[in-house]
Simulated assay, not measured.
Amino acid sequence: MATYVLIPGMCHGGWTFEPITEQLRRRGHRVYPMTLTGLAERSHLLNATVNLETHIQDVVNLLVAEDIEDAVLVGHSYGAMVITAAADRLPERVDSLVYLDAMVPRDGDSCWSLVTDQERQWYLDVAETGYVVRPLPFFDTRATGHPLASVLQAVRLTGDLGRFRRRDYVYATGWDGESPFTTFYQRFQADPQWHAHALDSKHNLMRDAPEKLLAILLEDR
């Protein structure tokens, strides 16, 4: 039995993993689909102080409070920033990392520094508050604004991802136009220490390719 901690991308809650969560639990695994502070059903907690560090601490606190060991941390898009740092803080509690169409940061990187100019234009489309990135029109109707500070703040890492038993990168090939994650996929496809996968799917792999994604999540667990 594995323990999966599922971290969504910008503007989304743990419910974005519903198709995967149900299937993993049916197979006897422990699954924690997280909603980060200030998002979705926790949007009432959003204020100007919520940042990347807040979200990292969300995951760290869960791992400790639930006494999770050998966790499989799964991060979609922005969620990959969070799982990378959480694993760096508590490597003894993490077995493997799964990146779902996501950026993979090094020390000092931020979402802002890793994405394309098109993505940056979206980040700067803030709501009237000045600190909330608006959800895009095609997002799930449950999506809410995302804290701008979390995509601007640089991540601080002290160790190497090679510490973890397994690392998977899952790339979505169905983008309309250029994917901001192509360079990551190409890097890990050429690295024998990574398991790189390409799925015929749009960015929301959980919704558009759940069966193929489930097979990857279950591989060697």
Rank of each mutant, 00 (worst) to 15 (best):
37 T>C: 12
119 E>I: 14
27 R>G: 09
216 I>P: 00
68 I>V: 13
103 M>Y: 10
80 A>Q: 02
157 L>V: 08
156 R>W: 11
10 M>A: 15
54 T>D: 05
13 G>L: 04
148 L>V: 08
172 A>D: 07
111 C>S: 15
152 L>M: 15
178 E>N: 13
63 L>H: 00
55 H>N: 10
67 D>C: 06
157 L>T: 09
115 V>C: 12
41 E>I: 10
170 V>I: 14
166 R>P: 00
114 L>M: 15
15 W>E: 09
82 V>L: 05
176 D>I: 13
19 P>G: 07
97 L>R: 01
209 A>Q: 10
204 N>R: 12
73 L>Q: 02
88 D>S: 06
209 A>M: 06
111 C>Y: 13
148 L>R: 09
93 R>M: 00
168 D>T: 11
82 V>T: 09
90 L>E: 04
221 R>Q: 11
87 A>I: 00
191 D>R: 05
31 V>T: 10
77 S>C: 02
5 V>M: 08
218 L>H: 03
75 G>T: 02
59 V>Y: 00
91 P>H: 02
219 E>C: 09
203 H>I: 07
43 S>M: 09
109 D>W: 05
99 Y>D: 03
66 E>L: 03
65 A>E: 12
62 L>V: 08
202 K>G: 15
135 P>G: 10
121 Q>A: 14
118 Q>S: 14
47 N>T: 09
107 D>G: 13
185 Y>A: 09
80 A>Y: 02
148 L>N: 02
68 I>P: 00
70 D>V: 00
57 Q>E: 12
119 E>L: 13
46 L>T: 01
158 T>C: 12
174 G>E: 08
4 Y>A: 08
49 T>C: 08
100 L>N: 01
197 H>C: 00
136 L>Q: 14
171 Y>P: 02
50 V>K: 05
42 R>P: 07
